[in-house]
Nucleic acid binder design. Structure first.
Length: 559
RNA sequence: GCCCCCGUAGCUCACCUGGAUAGAGCAUCUGCCUUCUAAGCAGAGGGUAGCAGGUUCGAGUCCUGCCGGGGGUACCA
């Protein structure tokens, strides 16, 4: 590799290769000389030695093949703190997305089924991506693509007509429908004719049969009320609730477009798009009986979204098990030659399992999100009564902590990994958890309350000099980069990891001790020093608060 | 069978897309509250990164094969 000819290029070349040494005593930044070895025909260590010899020894040094640089704490403080103080939670905002729209499909639960912890993953990741992209200047469009159409409603209708009772449905709609659904699958094993009935009833539903539509509407209304309650608890919102049924009257238009493009063929009585040349099974559009399928409605959804929003990108936050489905559907869009074919992204994630098994509504092997929230709330309330008995808003705070714990259980792990749901882990509020971040936020807030004065920007930065403060400042500085990376990779976990580190570094600073082992307090009778530290404290609180907001986790002031 | 994902400490996970001695948390053990919130902090033990090759100055990270787990594979979503 040759060196870039101009100096600006050289800067970029070096800047792009800077690293943060794992062992921080080596320096704050490091340039590994390996990349120059080939073009300069010298050993990396030799290059590092020669380069360092020409630089200010107070700041640069060679260590083996690395050129390490040390920055002055005060200088970093003077650069970073006024910036955060001035921008507040807008720190890290960007304009890369200015004027661009990003459609995000998330949560999308199936109606007539309870909202289980399994549904939380898409909801949490999608909502977080919504806020992350918004921070980068995009205009996000949150879409809840409710699973409110399909053969399963044939099953529900059959089950309800056979065993359902209106009074029971009114009492506890979702649980009741859930029981019926489980019962249907159990009975179906013994009596396969039920499957055929279900298929027929779904076809009737698509053809507008009044009885089928009546029941379906009933199920849907109860479900929406139920889901809305859950979303309110979670603080999750959508811009559009356009479920699969929304596209019913657009299906024929979609079929026309595909037919005109010559993509539709008939195979075993079904209408399909042949995808064999691309190493995929055919994409099924219509069953032999003429009823639509998931993919048909998905295609209609894509057209509609593009026509309505003219998105610059469309994300589908849906589990990895549907990977092939999206590959097929996206391929069909590509074959149509749509210009936005490469703007469609399946943001996939792993299963939430229970006792190493996939949670299945059918088998009744599912944990209700509400039960988890309630249990976590109880535990949080108990801890508060124990540790902070005078706390006002106990209930509200307990709920915040419960949500922090539950949401972080999902967002604290890289999305492609399967998560094994464990009560023990969700109910753990110590260590790398949501409540740990919330606790740190409460602690920071408490300091600011106690300080009781406005935070001043004009401080003596020379008073900020400890290694702990340096770590904090460098980490604060990386926030914007972290948000960017999270967006690029559709991975809120980067922010979660970042915040854990921020909290850990702060807590170390908070509890640091002097040479005699005595606690060095942030608020002391030395006014100038306290003022400088409080500017740092306020900055940490601001970034932590904003980071939690990006994850959709509430940030209590006290707990 | 074919395709995709995963495999790192007893357990749950990181390693910022190839860099220095693989890091955290949980659990276990030891310290630290006359309280700026101990839901915290400091410390100890704990590793053949599934296995075997390959690529190169350098591999947990890239490639190939194998083993183990999960998912998908035409009328479910």
């Amino acid at each position: 590799m040759a060196l870039p000819p101009d100096v600006a290029g050289l800067e970029g070349f070096i800047y792009g290769r800077l690293e943060v040494p794992r062992d921080r005593t080596m320096g704050d930044f490091a340039f590994p000389a390996f990349s120059l070895a080939a073009s300069l025909k010298e050993k990396p260590a030799e290059i590092a030695r020669k380069v360092a010899a020409q630089l200010d020894p107070a700041q640069f040094s060679a260590a083996g093949p690395y050129i390490n640089a040390v920055l002055s704490v005060s200088e970093i403080a003077a650069a970073v703190l006024p910036l955060i103080h001035g921008q507040g939670t807008a720190f890290g905002n960007q304009s890369v997305g200015e004027g661009k729209k990003i459609a995000i499909d998330y949560s999308s639960p199936n109606i007539a089924k309870p909202f289980g912890v399994g549904h939380l993953r898409s909801t949490a990741i999608g909502h977080s991506l919504y806020r992350i992209y918004e921070k980068l200047g995009y205009r996000p469009i949150g879409i809840n693509h409710l699973g409110d159409w399909g053969t399963q409603f044939g099953k529900m209708i059959v089950a309800y007509r056979k065993w359902g009772r209106d009074d029971q449905l009114a009492k506890e709609p979702i649980t009741y429908l859930y029981d019926l659904y489980v019962r249907f699958h159990a009975e179906e094993e013994k009596d396969p004719s039920l499957s055929e009935d279900a298929r027929l009833w779904f076809k009737k539903l698509e053809d507008g049969d009044p009885e089928a539509v009546r029941l379906w509407t009933l199920f849907k209304e109860y479900s929406l009320t139920e889901f809305q309650r859950i979303y309110d608890i979670l603080g999750i919102t959508f811009d559009h609730y356009t479920g699969e049924s929304f596209y019913n009257d657009r299906i024929e238009a979609v079929m026309d477009i595909l037919r005109r493009a010559g993509l539709v063929t008939e195979s075993q009585g079904a209408q399909v798009v042949e995808l064999e040349p691309y190493g995929m099974p055919a994409c099924l559009l219509k069953k032999a009986d003429g009823a639509t399928l998931y993919a048909t409605r998905e295609l209609a959804g894509i057209f509609y979204r593009y026509e309505t929003f003219h998105f610059d990108r469309a994300l589908y936050v849906v589990g990895a098990s549907q990977q092939e489905h999206f590959k097929q559907v996206f391929k069909v869009i590509e074959l149509l030659g749509e210009p936005y074919a490469d703007k469609l992204v399946h943001v996939e994630f792993g299963w939430i399992k229970f006792k190493d098994q996939a949670m299945s509504t059918r088998k009744g092997n599912i944990i209700f999100l509400e039960d988890v929230i309630a249990t976590a709330e109880e535990k949080a309330a108990k801890i508060i009564r124990d540790k902070n008995p005078g706390l006002p808003n106990l209930e509200a705070t307990a709920r915040m902590i419960a949500l922090g714990a539950i949401l972080f259980a999902d967002l604290g792990v890289k999305k492609h990994k399967d998560v094994n749901f464990s009560w023990e882990e969700v109910l753990n509020f110590e260590g790398e958890t949501g409540p740990y971040l919330q606790y740190t936020h409460a602690r920071l807030s408490s300091l600011i309350r106690r300080y009781g004065r406005p935070i001043a920007e004009a401080v003596d930065f020379g008073l900020i000099s400890s290694p702990e403060e340096k770590e904090l400042l460098l980490h604060l500085y990386r926030f914007g980069q972290t948000v960017e990376t999270a967006a690029e990779r559709y991975e809120p976990n980067y922010i979660a990891e970042y915040l854990l580190e921020l909290a850990a570094v702060f807590n170390r600073f908070y509890q640091r001790k002097d040479a005699e082992g005595k606690l060095v307090k942030i608020i002391s009778d030395r006014e100038d020093e306290t003022g400088a530290r409080m500017l740092l404290v306020a900055a940490v609180r601001s970034v932590l608060n904003e980071g939690l907001r990006l994850l959709g986790i509430p940030a209590p002031e006290e707990m």
